[in-house]
C-alpha cells in the first residue's frame, strides 16, 4: 500500500515541469520550436532491496513508466498506455517507444551521432527501429550503447554528448530529442556526493526536443 501511495505521490509531483524556448533557426524555411522538458520523473527510487549484493542492495522504483507525448508536450496518464497518445516512455535509463511490444502506436527511433542543431533533415536512408525488433528497445539500453554512460565507480549516469534520439511519433510524424541530464534540477551530483543524494535525485530527465507537426523530416 505504501508503495502505491509513494507512486501516486511521485506521479503527482509531475506538474509545471515544462519550459519553452525558441531556437535560433535563421535561414531555414521551416521553423520548429525547441522545447526543454525539466525534471521528468522516470520511475524514481522508492527503496533499496534488503541485504547486500549480489542478492540485495539494489535500488528500485515502483516499476512504472512515465509516458510522454512529444506532439502535445505532455505527460500521458498510465491509463492511456495502450493508446496512440504517447510517443516515448521513461523508466530509469530505459526509454521505450510506442511501437512493437511497448505500445500499439507506429513509433520508432534510432540514435543519431552528432549535434541536435546539425540534424536539420533526417537522412532518407535512416532506418527507424521499433521496440522488440531487433532488440527489446529501439533506443538501445545499457551503458555506452544508446544515450548514456554509467560510471560504476562513482555510480553516476551521464548522457553521452552528441547523441540525438531521432523519433518517429506514434502517429508517424518526426521529432528529435536530446537528453541533457538524468538528475533532478538538471545537475548531475558531484562524484563525491553521498549515495543518498545520488539515489534520491536520479531518474529525473531533462531533455530538449523539436517536433515537426507537418509530417516532414525537416526541422
Amino acid at each position: 500500500m505504501s508503495k502505491m501511495k509513494q507512486m501516486i505521490l511521485v506521479l503527482g509531483i509531475v506538474v509545471s515541469l515544462v519550459a519553452c524556448s525558441k531556437d535560433d533557426n535563421s535561414g531555414t524555411s521551416t521553423v520548429v520550436e525547441t522545447i526543454t522538458v525539466n525534471n521528468l520523473p522516470a520511475d524514481t527510487i522508492i527503496g533499496i532491496t534488503p541485504g547486500a549484493p549480489p542478492t540485495g542492495g539494489f535500488p528500485y522504483g515502483a516499476g512504472r513508466y512515465t509516458f510522454y507525448s512529444l506532439e502535445t508536450n505532455k505527460i500521458v496518464p498510465a491509463s492511456d498506455s495502450a493508446s496512440n497518445k504517447w510517443d516515448l516512455a521513461f523508466k530509469g535509463t530505459t526509454i521505450a517507444t510506442n511501437s512493437g511490444n511497448s505500445g500499439p502506436g507506429g513509433a520508432g527511433a534510432f540514435v543519431f551521432v552528432g549535434l541536435f542543431n546539425d540534424l536539420k533533415t533526417i537522412p532518407t536512408d535512416s532506418s527507424f527501429r521499433v521496440d522488440n525488433a531487433p532488440s527489446a528497445f529501439a533506443i538501445t539500453t545499457g551503458s555506452n550503447r544508446g544515450w548514456y554512460v554509467y560510471d560504476g565507480i562513482n555510480q553516476l549516469v551521464t548522457p553521452i554528448p552528441g547523441r540525438v534520439l531521432v523519433v518517429r511519433t506514434a502517429s508517424g510524424k518526426y521529432a528529435k530529442v536530446e537528453i541533457l541530464n538524468y538528475y533532478k534540477g538538471g545537475t548531475t551530483p558531484a562524484t563525491t556526493a553521498s549515495d543518498a543524494i545520488k539515489l534520491t535525485t536520479q531518474r529525473y530527465y531533462t531533455f530538449r526536443f523539436s517536433f515537426q507537426p507537418n509530417g516532414t523530416k525537416t526541422f
Binding site: 551521432v113 549535434l115 541536435f116 553521452i160 554528448p161 552528441g162 536530446e178 541533457l180 541530464n181 538538471g186
Partner: peptide, 15 residues
C-alpha cells in the same frame, strides 16, 4: 569531429 562535450546550457557541442 566525432567527439562532443557540453556547453554551459547542457547542450552538446563539438569538442
Amino acid at each position: 569531429g566525432k567527439v562532443f562535450t557540453r556547453d554551459q546550457n547542457g547542450f552538446s557541442r563539438k569538442m
